[in-house]
């Protein structure tokens, strides 16, 4: 398990990150999300040992990471870069030798990685000749070149088409399944929701929420249900239903259906369920109900809620 505790770092008078702590369990994919300038890249650079924190430390397998040990980490920087005029396979092999592989092992690893990423036909092309998507795949290969025991990837999926996203995600999953912790940042929250086991949300240099994805989503559902088939006024008049809102759905306007979301005030989940069912029964008495379900927010919605909320929350994991 990789853990960061109390990382703080300022650039001049600006505090980029402030007391950042979270864990990246082995064998799991952890998504690191936050707005631009929230402190993701600074945190990742510190984990990599490329940047020194003012305070705090990075711990891997229970021991603080020394400068030398972080050599074992695979990194993909935020802005892409490989030597433009160097041949692809040679370049990945070079990076592998820097991580301590012998020349022969490095060459074999480069070939195997690139082939797995669908670049088997481009081994001897220079990087500048590759399309942007292929350069991105090459970048993934660069991060994996040294067979790292920890992966830290800054926006690994940006610029990839859906097929490439699937390829890269599968390769990363496979890597993680062998026991490496993976931390990756992304703005594509749907993607994070799809492939992450855990989520860390950072805003303005502070951690706002960390925990398993499912826990986080469930917590933020906060006893809300969705129903389609009743009028907003009718729903608002029900004693159990609070905070009635209309769910805007693109392309659904004027098709008759209207999804409404409401919350129920209750002391515990069982009581909430009872109140919601009472609303459903009342609704069935006045007409046809086309949809009734507990609402699960998307990660985007959780993210929006979390970053406006000033107090950091710790979710049990």
């Amino acid at each position: 398990m990789l853990a960061v505790t109390g990382l703080t770092r300022s650039f001049g008078s600006r505090r980029a990150i402030d007391d950042v702590s979270f864990t990246v369990p082995s064998g799991q994919v952890t998504g690191f999300i936050g707005g631009n300038g929230a402190g993701k890249t600074t945190t990742m650079r510190i984990i990599l040992g490329v940047l020194v924190p003012d305070r705090g430390e990075v711990v891997f397998q229970g021991r603080p990471v020394a400068r030398e040990q972080s050599r074992d980490f695979g990194y993909m920087p935020e802005e892409r870069g490989l030597y433009p005029k160097m041949k692809l396979a040679e370049q990945i092999a070079y990076l592998a030798t820097l991580h301590g592989l012998s020349r022969a092992a490095a060459a074999a690893r480069a070939r195997q990685l690139l082939t797995g990423l669908g670049l088997g036909a481009r081994l001897d092309d220079t990087v500048e000749k590759l399309s942007l998507g292929n350069q991105q795949r090459a970048q993934v290969a660069a991060a994996l070149a040294g067979d790292p025991s920890v992966l830290v990837l800054d926006e690994p999926f940006s610029g990839l088409d859906p097929m490439a996203i699937d390829t890269v995600a599968a390769i990363l999953r496979d890597y993680v399944s062998r026991g490496a912790p993976l931390l990756f940042s992304s703005h594509q929250l749907d993607l994070v929701e799809r492939i992450c086991d855990r989520v860390v949300i950072i805003a303005a240099g502070k951690i706002r929420a960390t925990g398993s994805r499912d826990e986080l989503l469930r917590l933020h559902a906060s006893n809300r249900w969705e129903i389609d088939g009743v009028a907003p006024d009718w729903l608002a008049a029900q004693p159990q239903a609070d905070q009635v809102e209309t769910v805007e759905e693109p392309g659904q306007a004027g098709q008759g259906g209207r999804r409404l979301r409401f919350s129920v005030a209750a002391a515990d989940p069982a009581a909430a369920e009872q109140s919601a069912q009472a609303v459903l029964r009342a609704a069935l008495d006045v007409g046809a109900v086309r949809l009734f379900a507990p609402w699960r927010p998307s990660l985007v919605e959780v993210f929006r809620e979390v970053i406006v909320d000033e107090t950091p929350q710790e979710v049990s994991a």
Binding site: L98, S102, D147, S149, R178, A180, D197, S212, D214
Partner: peptide
């Protein structure tokens, strides 16, 4: 992709045995 316990036993990655920790002179030479 389901959430699981925090501690998953870390299995060694395949190339672990062949990797050497390089001194900085060796790295400079590379």
């Amino acid at each position: 992709m389901t959430s699981s316990q925090d501690v998953t036993p870390a299995r060694p990655t395949p190339a672990e045995g062949s990797r050497r920790q390089l001194g900085w002179l060796r790295l400079a030479w590379l």
